[in-house]
Every structure is written in C-alpha cells, then in structure tokens.
Amino acid sequence: MRPVQALIDLDALVHNYRHARRLGGGRALAVVKADAYGHGAVRCARALDGEADGFGVACIEEALELREAGVRSPILLLEGFFETAELALIERHDLWTVVASPWQVEALERHRPARPWTVWLKLDTGMHRLGLPPEAYADAWRRLQALGWVQDMVAMTHFARADELGEARTEQQLDAFDAALAGLPAGTAASVANSAGLMAWPRARREWVRPGLMLYGTHMLDAPCEAAAALRPVMQLQSQVIAVRELGPGEPIGYGGGFITDGPTRVGVVAMGYADGYAQYAPAGTPVLVGGARTRLIGRVSMDMLTVDLSGHPDAGVGTPVELWGPGLPVAEVAAHCDSSPYRLLSGLKRVRREYGP
C-alpha cells in the first residue's frame, strides 16, 4: 500500500475547540466546511458533537452529510441557501441559515414554515463579498423579525484582514458593525470573530465566535500572538522514502532539471506529489522531516513523487518515515515557502488515506 497518510489527532482538535471557546467567552461555532479543511468533516464533527455549540458549513450538501452521519447539533449554512427549493430541506433537517442578500429576505417572507427558525443576518462591513449594506440592514432585520416564526436571530459580519495585526481596516469594520447594531433591539446576539479575529482582536469576541483554521492547529497571523501559541496541530502528513540515489556534482534532478547538484548528493525519493495535494511549485529548500530530522526539498515536485536531500542523513533509507507537515513541521511554515497558505494545503489534499487517533 502506498505509504501516504494523514494522521488526524482528534484530541488536539477538541483541545483547540476548547481553547477557542474559552477565548471567546461565549458560544463557539466549529467551522467544518470543505471537509473540515481536509481533516474529514464527519469524523471531526463526531469528535466535537455534544461539545461544540454548533457547526458551520458552506452549503446544504455539507450539512446533509453531517445529519446523515448522526450529528444532531445545530448546523449553520454559512453561504445561506442558493435557491428557494432548499428551504424545505433546511426545515426538514433543522438547520440554521445565514441570510446575506435581499432576495433571501424576500424568499423567507414568502415561506410558510412548520417550525421556528434561527437566522444569522449578515452585514457587509467592508469585505464586499456577501452581506447586506449598512443602509439596508436594520430594515431587513425588522422584516425577518416581523415574520414571527424567525425565533432567534444573530447579527454577523466577516473580517477581510484580521490576520494583519497592524491593519486599521479591522477596527473600521468593527466600528461599522457596532454602528449597525445600534439600530437593532438591545441584547441582540452577535458574531464577528473568525479564527484571526478571535485570537488577535479581543473587541471582536461577541456572543458567538466562529473558529475555523485555528481548530486545526494553525493560523496565518502576521505577528506573534499569545493566543496562537496554545494551538496543537491536528494533522500530520506522512509518507516514506521509497528509493535512494547517489549522484555526483553537476547532475540535474527531476523535470526540467531546475536543480543541479553542487557536489556529491544523496537523494531520497518520497511517495508524495501534487496529485496528493502537495504544492506543485514548492521550491527547492522547502523544509521536510526525514526520520524526524530536518532536510530540504530538491528538484521539482512530480505528480506522485518528490525528492529530498539526504546528504546529511546517512541513516535514512528506503522505508524511513517522512513528515511533510505536522507537529514537528508547522504547515504554515511549509505554506510560506510555497507562496501558499495553510488553508490551501490542508483543504487541497487528495488521494491521502486518513488515520484517526489517538
């Protein structure tokens, strides 16, 4: 069997969720969209079911997968519904939905439900993606509240640059959000903080927080942050050395011959490639752990294999374990070398067997 696997530490996942909830001081929605950022939505949600205050998914397909797997906790559709035909499914499966566009407000006004609903109404405070403009927000709130069957409502927005700790735009978005809330009933529940907002912007911690990337033990903050230090990596991406080559100086390695040995070089071939989700254009020098010791990528990443420098690792050979990222090598560090992000690397995995523990 090809020795490529992702070891998923569910204890670390629970630890990170509890850390997020403590930071927020209220309730925390565990975001498990995109197959839990590549970690397996069903297994991650089951590990948190009964612990998490609810789950966030992108769309109804992801929500139904969790319901079919027996997850009974609240599930919020972060992108809302895409067509009115979905309203019956939302009701049947007891889902919560985001409302972010005027047509969705109108669709709910025409709907005749059999049970109370929970709606999160999204305000555009400057992300300019989804969300109602500030001038239309209070009216939409009143229209939904007037329906009677909308039992619970949460005001929400989303940050555009919360990873940048010195960026004034986040405070401006918070100001815009608070100004909009001033026109709503006192005591309105709110949700502002994503992972970066939760860790680095205390003002963003409201009644609900929405940890996503931090649940999986990593972040994209551009400066040190005490709250991030407590995170535990959830995934360890592993493979093995499957061949060793001894090359002299001046030898090209891999497609295109972009890497040329500058002296005697011991080359390890690893079963891992871009078809598995590893970054295709990861440059030479990208860190890798072989047998627990650091070395570097050399040569271009292929579809199914990559090559590493074993010159300083005489004991490494066929069968030696390789960690592409994990507890010993942060995925954020690998992503930085690849001009990518932890989001893309983690959620882009394919053809990788998952093993859950401890």
Rank of each mutant, 00 (worst) to 15 (best):
H337G: 03
V308I: 12
A155D: 06
A36W: 01
E79Q: 15
Q236L: 07
L144T: 06
W120C: 06
W141H: 06
P224T: 08
D49G: 08
C338D: 05
L324N: 04
R112A: 10
W96P: 05
P224L: 07
Q5M: 13
A279T: 11
V334I: 07
A88L: 14
A271Q: 13
G54C: 11
D11P: 13
G25R: 05
L130M: 09
L130G: 02
P116T: 02
G268P: 03
Y216C: 01
A179S: 13
D124P: 04
S73I: 06
T84K: 14
D49H: 07
Y274H: 15
E167H: 15
T320H: 01
R43T: 07
S73L: 07
L78E: 03
R18D: 11
R351W: 11
L329W: 08
R129A: 11
G277C: 08
P211A: 06
P358R: 13
E83W: 13
R110T: 11
P134S: 14
C225H: 03
L349R: 14
G250R: 05
G328K: 04
A284C: 14
I253F: 00
V14L: 15
G319Y: 00
I242E: 00
A279P: 14
S311V: 09
S239R: 04
A20M: 11
L66I: 02
L324W: 12
R206A: 07
G291H: 04
A189T: 06
E51R: 15
V57I: 04
G357W: 12
Q240P: 13
D9T: 12
H313I: 08
A63I: 00
W120G: 00
L130A: 09
D139M: 09
A47L: 07
R27E: 12
A200R: 01
E109N: 07
L144E: 08
S302C: 09
L297G: 00
G166M: 03
L95V: 06
P358K: 13
R67S: 07
A85K: 15
R110P: 08
I242S: 03
A155E: 05
L184P: 05
A88I: 09
P224D: 10
M214L: 14
L237Q: 08
P116D: 12
P113E: 10
A228L: 11
V99H: 04
G50T: 05
E167N: 15
R21L: 11
L13T: 01
A45I: 02
A186E: 15
G256I: 12
E62L: 03
S73A: 14
A189I: 01
D11K: 14
T265L: 01
L289G: 02
A140C: 10
G217I: 06
Y278N: 02
G256W: 13
G26T: 12
P102T: 09
L10N: 01
G257H: 06
F55C: 10
A88T: 14
